[in-house]
Design a protein around this nucleic acid. Structure first.
Length: 356
DNA sequence: AAGTCGGGGGC
DNA sequence: GCCCCAGACTT
């Protein structure tokens, strides 16, 4: 390694203090009950960009429903998405099922314990690969997430911009150099636990830090200035008219979103892009696109929803149609009780409160 | 290297 | 409002 960040750094002392602290202070989390590689895997995927408290109930339900790779491999994708509903980043669920089907067909249902096979599975990137190898198989592999970059940026006083895509490689090399070979699982989880409980983004609790003596940022009094992270730019707003269309049976029109892109394969109420076509043309646009005649009735309210990179502003309308069926299977008339079986993104769950 | 891809919670 | 979160994938 060409980087000099580890010169004069007491690696073994740092490892020892961190692992001892982790053993004494680790939270009792459901995915820590055993080292089942499948469960470790599921937890790591759910935890991507998602807080521990949010994941816990989802993990419990998911493992109850799909206790083994076989259960998940043989499940219907729509049921998997329904179980994932509300957790976000739904491609995680679809990639996970794709990968589990791969290990059932190619690896006898066993999670591979080598980096090459593991890393080639859908949705298993550098972090998840290292996490599974270290936590489930006790291999001294680096597992660099946001916590690890923050902790190492402070401990080693590194001012690279962690928002840039190239920076992670540098931290992966450093993490590979300092990971404990005696207890890689406790070491990697210890860094992340420290980042979550002590070495937090704002107001880190350095007085309670087990590796304070090893922290160059603390010694220089710059722990609040690190890590360096450039700003993200703000979302664009898109306006839609979102339609609760009912026929004489009391059934409601829903549609399946495309298999790629935002909220892929999730279901929703029809949305009309009023930015593009103008509010006056909603009914005729709908007839063109859906082949269904509708009559707009009353506006029921507004729903706004913020995604990572865009913002939806939905005007919710009630509408009426004389149609009783749709042209293709991507659109359906369903009763209000049947709605529960389909996976809906949160903004469309918000719309359901406007149904009678 | 920059965009895309959810949703919730803290302040 | 803004920021963050046990990131991966596409372009």
């Amino acid at each position: 390694m060409t980087d000099k960040s580890l010169q004069n750094f007491n690696i073994s002392g740092f490892q020892k203090e961190l692992i001892e602290w982790y053993q004494a202070n680790k939270r009792n989390l459901p995915w820590r009950a055993d080292q089942d590689p499948y469960k470790v895997w599921v937890s790591e995927v759910m935890l991507q960009q998602t807080k521990v408290d949010t994941v816990i109930p989802y993990f419990q339900r998911f493992i109850s429903k799909y206790p083994t790779p076989y259960d998940l491999a043989y499940a219907d994708e729509q049921d998997v998405l329904k179980t994932w509903e509300g957790l976000g980043y739904y491609s995680r669920a679809r990639n996970l099922q794709n990968a589990v089907r791969e290990i059932v067909s190619s690896y006898d249902g066993k999670v591979p314990d080598n980096p090459k096979q593991l890393g080639s599975l859908k949705g298993v990137g550098p972090y998840t690969k290292g996490a599974i190898l270290s936590i489930a198989f006790n291999q001294p592999e680096p597992a660099v997430d946001g916590n690890v970059m923050r902790v190492l940026a402070r401990v080693l006083k590194i001012d690279d911009d962690i928002a840039k895509s190239g920076t992670k490689k540098k931290f992966e090399q450093l993490a590979a150099a300092i990971v404990s070979h005696d207890d890689p699982s406790s070491f990697n989880q210890g860094v992340m636990e420290l980042g979550a409980l002590v070495c937090t983004p704002k107001e880190p609790m350095c007085m309670f830090c087990p590796v304070q003596d090893y922290c160059r940022a603390y010694q220089s009094g710059v722990e609040q200035e690190l890590p360096v992270k450039s700003k993200t730019k703000k979302q664009k707003t898109v306006q839609y008219a979102a339609l609760l269309i009912q026929n004489d049976n009391g059934d409601i029109v829903i549609e399946k979103r495309p298999e790629n892109g935002l909220l892929a394969n999730m279901w929703q109420f029809p949305m009309v892009p009023v930015d593009e076509i103008g509010k006056a043309h909603i009914e005729q646009w709908f007839r063109m696109e859906y082949g269904i005649d509708i009559i707009l009735q009353v506006k029921k309210g507004n729903v706004s929803h913020v995604f990572s990179h865009l913002r939806w502003q939905l005007e919710v309308y009630e509408a009426y149609t004389t149609s009783l069926e749709t042209a293709d299977n991507r659109h359906r008339f369903v009763s209000s009780s049947e709605l529960d079986h389909y996976p809906f993104p949160v903004p469309h769950q918000k719309m359901m409160k406007y149904l009678d």
